[in-house]
Simulated assay, not measured.
Amino acid sequence: MQQFAGGNERFIRRYEYEDSWVIAADIGLSEDEIDVDIVGTTAIVVADTGGHMTETEFELPVGGDVDVDVRNGVLTITIQK
């Protein structure tokens, strides 16, 4: 497991399992306030909170299919190996 904290102290954790990687980020936003695009091995996260938009990009492990889910303020990205 790797854990990172950004400037705003929101945590991003990366877990490696036998068949996948899971990246979980505490974003504190609803599914309606966030848009995630996967381009190659880059995740582009755009958040719109009441007219204020922010964009963050980060690299993903190289793998196969990618699944993105936002639930209870947590962004989860699962990458199949």
Rank of each mutant, 00 (worst) to 15 (best):
T56Q: 14
F11I: 14
E16M: 09
V36A: 01
T42N: 09
W21N: 07
A47L: 02
T42M: 11
I12N: 04
A25C: 09
E16V: 15
G63T: 08
F11K: 13
G64E: 12
S20A: 13
A25P: 00
E57Y: 07
M53L: 11
I27K: 04
E59P: 08
E59Q: 12
V36Q: 00
S20C: 12
D26G: 04
P61V: 02
G50W: 03
G40T: 10
E18V: 14
D26R: 04
T41R: 07
N8H: 09
S30L: 06
G6D: 14
D19F: 08
D32W: 02
V45W: 00
F11V: 14
D35A: 13
D65I: 00
D48I: 03
E55G: 05
E31G: 05
A5M: 14
V46M: 08
I23T: 06
F11P: 07
M53N: 04
R13L: 13
T56G: 08
R10H: 08
V45M: 04
G63A: 06
E57C: 08
I27G: 05
I34F: 01
M53K: 13
E31W: 01
I38P: 03
A25V: 10
A24L: 07
D35W: 06
V45C: 05
Y15I: 07
A24K: 07
